[in-house]
């Protein structure tokens, strides 16, 4: 059992990558990797698009709207996918909650 509080990402959440967490291309496997101290995650193309959009200014709701227009997909589905992904990042301490 962990005493670490579970962060809840909502539509109004504004997040960014914390200091020390960076997106880098792995030249060996030619895919993008999110690097953090003592941890790394290989990301697929959509995960990379999401991470690159985390500017610490736009909310999840705004990002969902932008992606909905860009990918011609339902905003609700996109918001759900983004929140699930960001929750995974947060659980691994790879996300900073701005508000």
């Amino acid at each position: 059992m962990s005493d670490q509080p579970q962060v809840v990402i909502t539509d109004s959440s504004v997040v960014k990558l914390p200091r020390g967490v960076r997106l880098r291309r792995d030249p060996v496997r030619n895919h993008m990797v999110l690097l953090a101290p003592e941890r790394a995650m290989a990301l697929d193309d959509i995960a990379v698009v999401i991470v690159q959009a985390l500017d610490g200014v736009k909310s999840v709701d705004v990002l969902s709207q932008e992606f909905s227009e860009k990918f011609h997909a339902p905003k609700d589905q996109i918001a759900q996918d983004i929140k699930a992904f960001l929750t995974e990042l947060s659980n691994r301490r790879m996300l900073e909650i701005v508000q």
Binding site: V33, L34, R39, A40, M41, A42, L43, D44, D45, I46, A47, V49, I50, F67, F71, H72, A73, Q77, I78, D81, I82, A84, F85, E88, R92
Partner: peptide, 13 residues
């Protein structure tokens, strides 16, 4: 590129 749920693999040592 079509929208899909983002996927990732945690790369362990």
């Amino acid at each position: 590129m079509a929208w899909h749920a983002p996927k990732f693999i945690e790369v362990s040592c």
